Computed example of a mutant assay.
Amino acid sequence: MDKIAVLIPCYNEEKTIYKVVTDFKAVLPDSTIYVYDNNSSDKTSELAEKAGAVVRKEYKQGKGNVIRRMFREIDAEVYIMVDGDDTYPAECAPEMVDAVINKNADMVVGDRLSSTYFQENKRPFHNFGNSIVRWSINNLFKTSIKDIMTGYRAFSYEFVKTYPVMSKGFEIETEMSIHAVDRNMQVENVIIEYRDRPDGSESKLNTYSDGIKVLLTIVKLYKNYKPFGFFTAISLVLALCSILFFIPVLSAYFKTGVVDRFPTLIVCGFVMVMAILFFAVGVLLSTLRSQDKRDFEYKLIQVDHMKKTSK
């Protein structure tokens, strides 16, 4: 088991990868640096190896697929995950490692949004999107993570070995944040200085398509992690619609003693039945989620035992 493992997922980062690897070797001399090349068509692998990194391949395209492979293959007491584009300062890594080792943090978030992100990032829709995602997650899941989509994080062994990677692409960071909050793991925020990509280095993100993916991921994860709230909200909307359309029918009946809008009455009845069913589904799934959380706590104990025996 490594003491510290620096994980760098890469796709066509030949302009910056050599500097990123050497920067982290300088600030974390006892760490092992792993670069996972995700089908790059440039010299990313050669330059990373030249800089002293352990280079491995992941052939399934997508950042989520790379991280899945990293988390499965590498054992370490502390993990640092960072992008290979040289937008995150290596100098903050020791503080993040310290939070895991000495503060028992399970996930440490490199917070760009509280420092220079909005000044350095030249893409206004990215800035707006980050703010929307942060607001959504913190309000839906009752947390205070400062930067939901940052690619600079530190993890404990327990987090890495109990985290089921489901996303395939850049929405992986959102999934990580929600998983940590839902599982009652300790999350720390460390403010970092963000810098935009250097000249010649191009972002792989698409503002609109990736933004839509992230928002859909939030909805999906809210359904999975908070089923009672999700299905109850749908139930309330359906019940309200049923009641609103039923009121005129009931009012006409009191005035004339005759129901002359039977189709509306029947539809209202079906909609109300659907509302009750959605509420029942929410209650049932919420009960299953409670059992799942208990099972997760047992799994944490097992993983902690594995960590101790592998040292």
Rank of each mutant, 00 (worst) to 15 (best):
D86P: 01
R123C: 07
G200K: 08
N184W: 04
V219S: 11
Y208G: 05
V78A: 02
Y34T: 04
L285D: 05
S41N: 13
Y298Q: 12
S251D: 14
T22K: 15
G257W: 11
R261W: 10
D23R: 08
Y36C: 14
R72L: 09
A233K: 14
S177V: 00
T87H: 02
P124S: 10
K50T: 13
P227S: 09
V237P: 03
L284W: 14
S310E: 05
R289S: 04
S209W: 06
V82Q: 02
S41A: 13
L7Y: 01
G257K: 11
F141A: 11
F279C: 08
T309H: 07
D295M: 11
E58F: 01
N138S: 07
R134H: 05
M176F: 03
A48N: 12
I276W: 10
L113N: 05
S177K: 00
I234S: 12
E95K: 03
A5Y: 03
T143V: 05
Q61E: 11
A105R: 02
S209H: 08
L47I: 06
L221I: 05
M274C: 15
Y59I: 10
G211I: 09
A233L: 13
S235G: 13
V109T: 08
F128G: 03
S201N: 10
P9N: 05
S201H: 12
Y79P: 00
L28S: 03
T207D: 15
I4N: 00
R123N: 12
L113K: 07
F228P: 03
H179A: 04
